[in-house]
Design a protein around this nucleic acid. Structure first.
Lengths: 345, 345
DNA sequence: TTGTATGCGTTATCAT
DNA sequence: ATGATAACGCATACAA
């Protein structure tokens, strides 16, 4: 009621308040916090109680300033809308958990400016190191140029064996090859690749794998079509256009650069001409999306070990941070074939 | 070659190195960093150059320790696999950007233990405040109990007007009502609700909205079915089971608790009995997923303003942090009807 | 406009 | 087992 309202200060208690309440020195409190074994049980008890009463929360800033380091890593994600990156985050978190470390995330949306900004923000935070997911080789170059050496940084989802950084990525060329080889093994011979714009490096790599597989079999691609994008609607259009040729026997296999694409194709095929999949044409997708699994005709696909990618990447980073003689490595993970109805024979 | 190798120290330069190189005091460097207007142009120039040469990066820990606060917020997300939460993150980032603040993310996977842990980690980091997304009312209670008051915390996606916290959420009951009302307006009268397990609070709210809309129209639900989950495969099964009754004229409208569910239903309907949607039965989904938009028969749906939710939530938090007389508010956002083919008349 | 000096809340070193 | 105290790297009064 008066202006001298004794406004209770929830202003967070400090270590010295705890020390006072527990009747010990701040050094002992600090020990109780970081080296429990160094302090006697009864003392520990009083301290813990004091901490509880005051709702004391250590100040991380002071802590890392004094300790000279953090207990967390930063992870910059390219695209929160893509389950691959979410898997990566999961894997990285699992690896961090093992060591009692935490992972802080940031979303770059694939924009160079934001990739830059968050790498720097994390640098200021003095995280132990940063994991950066990248799709675009040009971004890689830009960041390498700007990056203040000394801050451990490993690149995810982009391969680079120049030895300047650790990188971990998934072999898209191998994936494209895998998908195509599977179609060949099930007896298909007239195969077409349905990809996206060349600007997407992963798609381009898959296309190269496709070509190599055909070449090894002594075949040449029937065709390669590049819709403007890689979602279901695009697949539907492509499927419609392809239906004719499938019925004419000109095409008996389709390698799609994404599951959404594949799902659209299969759908268009069955609606527009009642073309039996997999009997008359085998279709395989990429990504192991839910869409592929959910489809009325479950679609064969290539699964990417996203979680393992994050896990491996985090370990690379941990090694770089902890091992004195660390040498940069470029790890490439292998995708995996998942056979479902759409390619059965 | 000798063991006295003059290992170059990339050990990050400090503010005093910059000061030395620029021939000024550290206070001036600090001013150059935080109050550029206070320092003379030529001096500024020398300092900037020095910073560049040394690759100086301010130590965030020291900075916030001295300043007493951070320039970032924490955001704990329930489910990175759900686009709603990704949208929330986007909105929150946009709000933060406006004020020159950053947002750090963490993924709780909806697990109480991780929600707790990250709220605490952020507390230690002394972020300005924390945004926490929650699905489960029981988690809310647990966290409220444990939470050390004083740390600004706003809850997202969960409504609570007890006045203890700011909350921002989307009105799922209204969404269910909206969907049902739309079906009623297009002349449907025999409507069934297809939901998920009751344990999902949002689904349950939508069901309540459905009931209310029917009651207002003086109708009773034809039926309510609860598949074990809410994805496409579940919808497909439900659709198969429903086909018979639709053909018999017992059902002419379906409110699904998710777009995936709706897509599966429509698909099963058209395959299993060639039942024309929307002519014979209107189907509406929820979420405004890509799946709904991509489907061969585009599906009407309820769109959730996730980005706005994040935006509003961040503003609530900013207000709580900056305004002395702040009072907690519980904001409820309205979902929106999106009409597409599947309910046309 | 620039420099000096103090303190932020911890951890770690060294005594005791 | 515990306590005193010096860093940690910077921001900010305040003095010059």
């Amino acid at each position: 009621m008066s202006d001298a309202a004794p406004r209770e200060e929830p202003a967070s208690a400090g270590i010295k308040d705890v020390a006072a309440l527990a009747g010990v020195s701040i050094a002992t409190v600090s020990n109780a916090l970081n080296h429990r074994e160094r302090v006697a049980a009864p003392t520990l008890d009083r301290i813990d109680r004091a901490i509880g009463m005051l709702g004391y929360i250590p100040n991380g800033a002071a802590r890392s300033l004094a300790a000279g380091r953090t207990r967390s890593f930063g992870l910059v994600l390219s695209d929160l809308g893509n389950s691959l990156f979410v898997d990566i985050a999961r894997g990285a978190e699992r690896a961090a958990d093992e060591r009692g470390l935490s992972i802080v995330l940031a979303n770059s949306d694939g924009e160079l400016e934001r990739e830059d900004r968050y790498v720097e923000l994390f640098a200021e935070t003095r995280v132990r190191g940063v994991l950066l997911t990248l799709n675009d080789a040009s971004h890689f170059r830009a960041i390498v140029g700007r990056h203040a050496h000394g801050q451990p940084l490993v690149m995810l989802n982009l391969h680079d064996d120049s030895g300047r950084y650790c990188t971990a990525s998934i072999d898209n060329e191998a994936g494209g090859h895998l998908a195509t080889a599977h179609l060949l093994e099930t007896g298909r011979r007239r195969i077409v690749f349905v990809g996206g714009p060349d600007s997407l490096q992963p798609v381009d790599d898959r296309r190269r794998g496709f070509r190599r597989a055909l070449a090894q079999a002594g075949l040449t691609p029937v065709d390669e079509v590049s819709p403007t994008w890689v979602n279901r609607a695009d697949g539907w259009q492509v499927g419609r256009a392809l239906a004719e040729r499938v019925r004419a026997g000109e095409v008996d296999g389709i390698v799609a650069a994404s599951d959404l694409l594949a799902a659209g194709i299969v759908q268009a095929l069955s609606e527009h001409g009642a073309i039996p999949v997999p009997d008359q044409v085998g279709v395989i997708g990429y990504d192991n999306n839910q869409a592929a699994w959910d489809a009325p005709i479950p679609i064969s696909t290539i699964s990417q070990p996203g979680e393992e990618l994050g896990f491996v990447g985090a370990h690379l980073l941990i090694d770089e941070v902890e091992q004195p003689g660390h040498e940069h490595r470029a790890i490439r993970l292998n995708p995996e074939l998942i056979v479902r109805r759409s390619t059965e024979r």
